[in-house]
């Protein structure tokens, strides 16, 4: 490759932004938009993995009370206990869980930061049409990413306060470790249940475009299985939608109760 003596010279206007000084690897990846998309895809897939596992784990709510070591116990609470005791005694109790939590938090922050900076980049690059646009490929999911994203972020905060930390929106009956009862108390409030349903629809829509988009951003591409990428995104987001929306409905309809 020929190294230019100057930046490409030509008639016409200047670049809208100059290339920043190169940071050392791997930070330089994050300096480019494609690199940011890559980070966004990896962090997004981590978060999707979490959401999916979280949803599967929560299905235990339907098992109600199960006998463990001779004690009748809510299976959900037992599951939560198991998570806290992962890899004990190699690590002390709760360490692995906190490690995963910090990992997810980092992924979330990177996901939000890359999304924000890329949105700003696009906003600066765009020159809106004066007439109406007619979109063909861009669907509601892809065009609402910058709407569903903030909704999901807000939901995460509320959800943590409600069922993990037990403050703010949490019910008065909140008790650490009593997962099953906390859920039933919280979602027993119709307005909260509806909020959860709306938020989870946003989650699923976000994941639907996000997953397909992640394959593309990561360059995971082969015409032989490309159609599967859409299908995979549909199946995963569909399962997450059904699973997650079922919880508030189940509580409201007393399928799940104390």
């Amino acid at each position: 490759m020929l190294s230019p003596t100057t930046t490409p010279q030509n008639s016409g206007e200047k670049p809208m932004r100059e290339k920043p000084r190169d940071l050392p690897f791997p930070l330089n990846i994050y300096q480019s938009a494609i690199g940011k998309k890559w980070v966004m895809a990896v962090s997004g897939l981590m978060l999707v993995g979490f959401v999916f596992a979280h949803m599967i784990g929560n299905l235990k709510i339907y098992l109600g009370q199960v006998e463990h070591n001779g004690v009748l116990d809510y299976d959900t609470d037992h599951y939560a206990e198991t998570l806290r005791n992962l890899l004990v005694p190699i690590f002390p109790e709760g360490v692995v869980l906190w490690g995963m939590r910090l990992g997810l938090l980092a992924a979330l922050l990177l996901h939000i930061h890359s999304a924000y900076t890329l949105s700003m980049l696009s906003r600066k690059s765009d020159n809106a049409y004066a007439g109406k646009r007619d979109f063909l490929a861009a669907n509601w999911a892809s065009r609402s990413m910058r709407l569903t994203g903030p909704i999901v972020a807000l939901y995460i905060v509320i959800h943590l306060a409600d069922l993990t930390l037990g403050f703010g929106i949490a019910t008065g009956e909140f008790e650490h470790g009593q997962v099953y009862e906390n859920v039933v108390h919280s979602l027993g409030r119709p307005i909260v249940a509806i909020g959860y349903i709306i938020a989870n629809i946003a989650v699923a829509v976000h994941i639907y475009h996000g997953m397909w988009s992640a394959f593309q951003s990561l360059g995971i591409n082969n015409p032989a299985y490309n159609t599967l990428r859409r299908t995979a995104a549909q199946v995963i987001s569909g399962l997450i939608l059904i699973g997650n929306v079922s919880f508030p409905i189940a509580v409201l309809t007393d399928i799940v109760s104390i």
Binding site: P8, P15, M16, R17, E18, K19, S32, A33, I34, K36, K37, L118, S119, L121, S122, R123, K124, S125, D126, F135, L136, A137, A138, S142, R143, M145, H209, W212, S213, Q216, S217
Partner: peptide
């Protein structure tokens, strides 16, 4: 060079 002039792809497919 592309990123000096144009926006970031969000995989719409338009």
């Amino acid at each position: 060079t592309m990123e000096q002039f144009f926006g970031a792809c969000t995989n719409h497919g338009e």
